[in-house]
Amino acid sequence: MDEKQQEIIMGLIINGGNAKGEAFEAIKAAKEGDFETADEKLKSADEFMAQAHNAQTGMLTAEANGDHAEVNLLMVHAQDHIMNAITFRDLAGELVDLYRKLATKQ
């Protein structure tokens, strides 16, 4: 694996982890009734996910152009981080909405 590919993979892991962390912070803020912060955290999570998505798109484009990437455990780990972050972000959005709905009924 060359240094450029390793940097891309580490970027995927970092951005996926940051997106998941921000989504978790959004849930915590919503639970406390701070929906402005929750919305900001979800937006931040989306920004981290966009960075990860752009890196993935670059890798997919290179692959489609015949520049085959070496698939190794680190690459699998990075993709796992991204998949978990996407799922967690989606769930966080639903939980923030649920807390918002509950707050309006109280």
Rank of each mutant, 00 (worst) to 15 (best):
M1V: 15
E7A: 14
E7H: 11
E7Y: 15
M10L: 14
G11P: 06
L12D: 00
L12W: 00
I13N: 02
N15S: 10
N15W: 04
G17P: 01
G21C: 12
A23W: 02
E25D: 15
A26H: 00
I27C: 09
K28P: 02
A29P: 00
A29Q: 00
K31P: 01
G33C: 08
G33K: 09
G33R: 10
D34P: 01
F35M: 04
E36L: 13
T37M: 14
A38Q: 02
A38S: 11
E40I: 13
K43V: 12
S44L: 15
D46A: 15
E47I: 10
A50K: 15
Q51T: 08
Q56F: 09
Q56D: 08
Q56W: 05
T57S: 10
G58Y: 09
G58H: 12
M59I: 11
L60W: 04
A62F: 05
N65Q: 13
D67R: 06
E70R: 11
N72Y: 07
N72M: 03
L73N: 06
L73A: 05
D80L: 06
M83K: 06
A85L: 06
L91R: 05
E94H: 14
L95H: 02
V96W: 00
V96D: 00
K105G: 08
K105I: 13
Q106F: 12
